[in-house]
Computed example of a mutant assay.
Amino acid sequence: MVAKQALPDITTNGIWSASSTKHGFGINNLYNNNIETFWQSDGKQPHSISVQFPTRQHIHSLSLYLDIDKDESYTPCKVCIFSGTSQRDMQLLQESDFKTEPRGWIDFTLSDVDGPLMAHFLRIELPLNYENGRDVRVRQIRILGPPASEQQFRANHTLPYTSPDFFMFDSIR
């Protein structure tokens, strides 16, 4: 039996923003490791949370902590996840309608044909709530990178060039 490797938490490697924020319930509540705090939107739907990484990141999964018991009509019932190399080329990765009411961590594995997703930008759209609620609450968010062994494999199987000119063309879009 192979032991499951821990995935590195890359949540705080990015710069976070939101489509709107209710005063006192800011975006920094999403990654403060406290499920009693939350980000709350304040405006028209769809609501969104975005993260921009300074360099392309290998992304294994994204997790949201939602709680229908505490947040009722503020709880999203649909999640759309987009990724891209810029805000202008975002593509839909996943669209999920919850079959059961969310209570706790909801995990989304993100990958492309070559393995873990590589992206500069992620956007999580929250277009619908339970009970036709208007604003959204998300208690925590986590973005996890691939296992260390996979990162080491990728590092050992890439060309030894490090110039910015080379990295502009290191993958096919």
Rank of each mutant, 00 (worst) to 15 (best):
41 S>H: 04
83 S>I: 00
23 H>V: 11
42 D>F: 09
81 I>E: 01
48 S>A: 15
33 N>R: 11
62 L>V: 00
48 S>I: 07
86 S>E: 10
101 E>I: 01
62 L>N: 00
19 S>I: 05
67 D>N: 15
32 N>H: 07
114 D>A: 12
48 S>H: 13
38 F>C: 14
68 I>K: 08
75 T>H: 03
32 N>I: 08
63 S>D: 03
82 F>Q: 01
59 I>C: 01
74 Y>P: 08
22 K>P: 00
47 H>D: 11
89 D>Q: 11
112 D>T: 10
115 G>V: 10
93 L>N: 15
22 K>D: 08
115 G>A: 09
27 I>F: 07
54 P>N: 12
106 I>E: 03
96 S>I: 12
43 G>S: 12
93 L>Q: 15
102 P>I: 06
35 I>S: 13
109 T>I: 14
11 T>G: 02
64 L>D: 04
21 T>G: 04
108 F>S: 01
15 I>A: 06
69 D>L: 13
7 L>M: 10
7 L>R: 14
72 E>M: 10
29 N>R: 07
21 T>Y: 03
105 W>M: 06
108 F>L: 05
13 N>K: 13
38 F>N: 03
55 T>A: 07
49 I>L: 15
111 S>E: 14
78 K>Q: 15
75 T>W: 01
95 E>Q: 15
94 Q>A: 10
43 G>V: 08
100 T>E: 15
